[in-house]
Every structure is written in structure tokens, then in C-alpha cells.
Design a protein around this nucleic acid. Structure first.
Lengths: 337, 337
DNA sequence: GTGAAAGCGCTAACAC
DNA sequence: GTGTTAGCGCTTTCAC
């Protein structure tokens, strides 16, 4: 149970001054080759590592990114995290995670917790509750304190910062359009993200695609699900109310899989009688029968880009303009279309 | 873009010394009430927060836990993380995440990265590759450097540290026994964790339950799957080779769901003709048709307990004996049994 | 070629 | 009741 080795200890053991040891470890031209060798040998022997806190204090940069995500049990966010972690590590940054659990209070706390010099900046996706309440002053405060923020996926226009998003409207438009081009005549939209901007965008995309197709006869059919325990019930009702449904687009794969299940129960052939498209390229899409066609948000890329954007901003003192980067989505055709 | 306020600035503005300000903020009895009030007012106005790095340097504790997990896209690990985060936050700790991605190299790097004074201790689950290679010296090194480790789920007996685990053998035993008590006559075991200790334990549990039931006629039927792309193929083969299969226990829900799918295709009625039990209480179990019976590892509890154990150890200077805490698992009966 | 000293922001023992 | 000082571990300027 050793305490970590310090420069002081090395210096003492070598009969050198602390500063000489410090310089030697950095191959300073000022220091004698032999001394450098001696110092390095001992440092290695003692497994010397410069103390991160001392370094941070001195340099006033922590090389750490605060990441605040709404829900760690969501595959999309986990995958973004994977992207962030990879890119951050590559560039010498660590990540501290806080979970807002979709609560405003927790988001605020996390922000405050980490803005005590723990991190150099933030990557975050806004909590559901925060979006509902339309709060954004806590983000502005943090930015004013000198912490840059990069928002991904769930963002707000009220805050001036870098953003990494997908074009949710376009993604939903394209998916709907895909169904229309297949000749589907009655397409429903299942929304589980009513409160969120991205939910609204996706709804818009769906509507736009229907309007855009002049030969499409039916009206919008949109159901929204808030309560996780009601998937079966509400989707069953959808099928009962619209016997001639032949296409469904959803905002997540749980509802898509549920729709699939209910379609089976009701004897539909898939994709002949009805087509289903989910959202997010997660494990579920490969498990359903038939395998679910989904919109891939490219979560990994979102994560990487977010990390890259933040680190670039932290490194670039010239403070460039804030940018919004739109990551390309992709319709992955499997077997339900 | 303000730099964060420091004691120095407050002191200057108030015409007081730094230490007076510091004491005032701590309600020191030494300091005049009025001074305290003045100091606090200004601190509040400037949104003063003590710098975390300075505090850490001074106190040589970071109030931060390093968490290293093998795979963030795995629901079980995400849920453990949720448990850790909750408990850690409650006790005033932050968590830094590193992902080993099941690689030894990355695990080693993460450990080294964080053992520079970034964290006070570690919570981790061993990477698959590390378990294969049976490496453990890197863990011992870290512990020798004074960083306590709490291992969860995938642990090794070679390292003396606190552990939070489930009884994988017992869990598999109970699940198999449950199938036997239902009168199932030919039960297969699908293992996706061959390399891991926990995989072996579960296999043992399955075998033990069969042996234990003296009336059981058939031999073990165990298939192992390493390659994610081969689920369909290998499980189909299982069904072909054993037409009279009437029970399946798996080590994850992807294979259970796949088994379900194939059973359907082959015209089995579930659970009448065949019963299936998965492992892990994730989203998949609720999505299959019929809903999948699974073993719940109680991931949240594992996470909480791991955090609690580590923080207790960090707080308790008397260095109590290392403990292994076994978290109870639970068979969640849904519709496939 | 090496070392002393200041300072990053903070705390706490010790003056006054 | 307030201030001075030393020190946490490190870097860096400046002196020798």
C-alpha cells in the first residue's frame, strides 16, 4: 500500500533538486545526459507518474470532459458514449459521466457538480423534463463560467453552442417516403417522444412525406405513447381502429417490435400485408421476426464528432463560430419492408 | 467567459486575507459574524466554488471513482453503471468511465491512465480477453499502489479485493431445476460466455441440476456460440439435431430470443412444446412473443453495492478484511415457461 | 548543468 | 477576530 511516488522523493533519493528531476524527465536540453538517465531509471523503478491533480492545478486544464446523458439504459446513448470515449481517449481526455435520468434537477446538479474545475467542458443531450420546461438558463450559466458545451441529439436553439445532431425530420421523411414508394396506402406513425424536439421533427417529416405524395389518400395517423406499460394496449388499439393499415413508422424499436408482435397475432404477413420501420440501430432490430428495418442514427459517429468538436474548441484559443454539424442517417433495410 | 472566482479574488475585493475568507465560508467560530455575512454575500454573488483540483491536491482524495467496464452496449453493464452512479452521487463521488471493450490492452491502459491520482479507487468487471489470458498482475499492481478495487460480475480469485457477484451456478441450477420440475425431458444449454468464469459457473449449474434429478434421462446438451453472426445458424442446428427438445436455458437474451424465433418457425407452441429461459432482465425479455422468462441478475443492486463497498473502504481507515458479497438473483417468470 | 523560488487554489497550524 | 505561513505536487523562470 505505497503512496504514489513524487518528484520530491525521487529528488531526495538522487540527491538532486526537484526541478532538476522534473526537467530531466522532460529531456530538457539543460540537463546532463547521465543525470537524465539516472533520473529516468529511478522513475521507472518507482513507477513514477506525475500527479494529475497537481498538473491540472498548474495548467488549469483537467483533460477531462463531462458527459451528461439522459438515460444510460438507452442503446442510442450508450453508443454515443462509446463514440465519445473512443475519440476522447485517443486525444488524451478522460470522461466523467453524469446521468440526468431525464430530470431537470439532476441535470442542473450534474452541471453544477462538474463546474468546479472537474472538467474542461461538457458534452450533453438535454433531459426530457428540461425540454418540457423549456429551461436553458443553466446551460447559459455554465457557458458564461467558461465551460464550453457541445449538445448532441436533443438540443435547444436557445443556447449558443456547438451541436451535433441528425436531421430527424429528413430521416422520418425518407423512411415514410420509402414506404410510399413501396405503394403503401395507409401509414401510421407511432411517437414515443412527443415532448421532445426531435419527436416533433420526426412527426413533421412523416407528415411532410404524406403531403408530398399527391396520390396518397389517407390522413395522418399518429399515436403517441408516454407510458411504457401501455405499448401493447395502444398499439393493439391502433390496429383495431385501422384494419387496413399497411405501414408503420415508429420513433423507437420497442414500439416497432411490439407492432410486429401484434401484427403477427392478428395474422398479418410481414412485409406483404404491413411494413414496419423502427428508429435506432440497436440489438432489437436484429432479433425480431422478420428482422426489423430501421433508421440508423449513426450514434457512434455522433459521439465521435461531439468529442472532436469539444476538444477542438478547447484547443483552439481563437474561439471560432459555433457550428451545428448534421450527421447523416441511413435507412437500413432488413426484412420488415 | 469569466475565469472561475478564487478565494484570492474574494479576499482582495473584501480587503481581507485569503485564510479569513476561507474560514468565513466554513462558518469558523474564529470569524466575526458580520465578516462571515459579507464574505458569503460576495461569494454567492460571484458564484464562488472551491476548485476541485486544489481540494484534491490538498486532501489527496479526489472523491472520484474509476469505473472500467467491458462493454457499454451490454444492458447488464449499463444497469450496473446506473446503480454505481446513483450510489456514488449520493455519497458525493463522481465517476470516471473507461471502457475496456473486452480487451486486455485497453483495460491495462485504463487502469494506468486513472492511477495518476485521477481517482481514489476502482470498480471494474474483467475484460473477456483478460480472463482468457488469465492476467491479473495489473490489478495487483494497482492495488499495491494504494488504489482499492471492487470487482463485480467477472472477477478472479487471484486478486485479493472486494467483490460483488451473483451466484451464477446457483442461478443456472435454479432455472434448470424449474424446467425439470415442469416435467421437461430434454433441456439444452446455450452458452455465449465460454471463456468467462461466469459462463463456466452457469454451465456447472445447468449440469448439476440435471444430475440432481435422478429421473432425468437425457445427457447434457450444450452448445457454445462465440461469433455474433452465427446465432441463427447454430441454434437452428441445435433444433435439427434434437427434434424432441422441450427446454432451453441460455446465457443471454439474444440467444433466447433467437431460439424463440426459430421455435416459432419450426411450428413449436411456446411454452407448451418448448420452454425458454434467458439471462438478464433487459428490454428484449419484454419484447419477445411470448414474453421471455429470464434470470434477473439484479444489476442495479450489484452497482449500488459495489459503489457502497468501495466508498466504505475509502472512508474506513482500519482496512477491514476483503469481502465477497453475493447478490441474490431471481427467476422472473413471464410467458415462455 | 543544477537549484532556488514563485505560484496554481486551497487548508490549517500558528502567530498576532 | 484576522493574518501569516507552509505545504499539497508540479512547472518554469531566473539565478548561480
Amino acid at each position: 500500500m505505497n503512496n504514489p511516488t513524487t518528484l520530491k522523493q525521487l529528488a531526495k533519493e538522487l540527491n538532486l533538486s526537484i526541478s532538476t528531476v522534473s526537467k530531466a524527465l522532460k529531456n530538457s536540453y539543460e540537463i546532463n545526459e547521465k543525470t537524465i538517465a539516472r533520473v529516468k531509471a529511478l522513475a521507472k523503478k518507482h513507477n513514477y507518474r506525475p500527479n494529475r491533480m497537481a498538473l491540472s492545478l498548474k495548467s488549469s486544464q483537467t483533460k477531462t470532459i463531462g458527459v451528461i446523458i439522459p438515460n444510460i439504459l438507452n442503446y442510442f446513448f450508450s453508443k454515443v458514449l462509446l463514440g465519445i470515449e473512443g475519440e476522447a481517449n485517443k486525444r488524451g481526455y478522460q470522461i466523467i459521466i453524469c446521468l440526468s435520468n431525464n430530470k431537470y434537477e439532476k441535470e442542473l446538479q450534474s452541471l453544477e457538480l462538474l463546474s468546479d474545475g472537474s472538467v474542461d467542458g461538457f458534452i450533453l443531450s438535454i433531459a426530457r423534463e428540461t425540454q418540457l420546461k423549456q429551461n436553458s438558463s443553466h446551460f447559459k450559466n455554465i457557458i458564461n463560467q467558461g465551460y464550453p458545451i457541445v449538445m448532441f441529439d436533443r438540443f435547444t436553439d436557445k443556447v449558443d453552442c456547438d451541436k451535433v445532431i441528425i436531421n430527424d425530420c429528413e430521416a422520418a421523411f425518407n423512411a415514410t417516403d420509402f414506404l410510399l414508394k413501396q405503394g403503401r396506402k395507409k401509414i401510421a406513425f407511432i411517437s414515443t417522444l412527443k415532448d421532445l424536439n426531435i419527436g416533433k421533427q420526426r412527426t413533421n417529416g412523416y407528415k411532410k412525406a404524406l403531403k408530398n405524395q399527391t396520390t396518397y389518400k389517407n390522413k395522418d395517423i399518429i399515436i403517441t405513447i408516454d407510458d411504457k406499460t401501455k405499448y401493447d394496449e395502444l398499439i393493439t388499439a391502433l390496429f383495431e381502429n385501422h384494419k387496413d393499415l399497411d405501414g408503420i413508422l415508429t420513433t423507437n424499436n420497442v414500439s416497432a417490435a411490439t407492432a410486429l408482435k401484434i401484427a403477427h397475432l392478428k395474422g398479418y404477413k410481414i412485409p406483404k400485408d404491413i411494413a414496419v420501420i423502427g428508429f435506432s440501430d440497436d440489438k432489437i432490430s436484429r432479433l425480431t421476426y422478420p428482422k426489423l428495418t430501421t433508421i440508423d442514427q449513426n450514434a457512434l459517429e455522433i459521439g465521435k464528432k461531439a468529442a472532436k468538436t469539444l476538444i477542438d474548441r478547447l484547443s483552439d484559443t481563437s474561439k471560432p463560430e459555433f457550428k451545428t454539424k448534421v450527421i447523416k442517417t441511413k435507412l437500413i433495410e432488413r426484412e420488415t419492408t
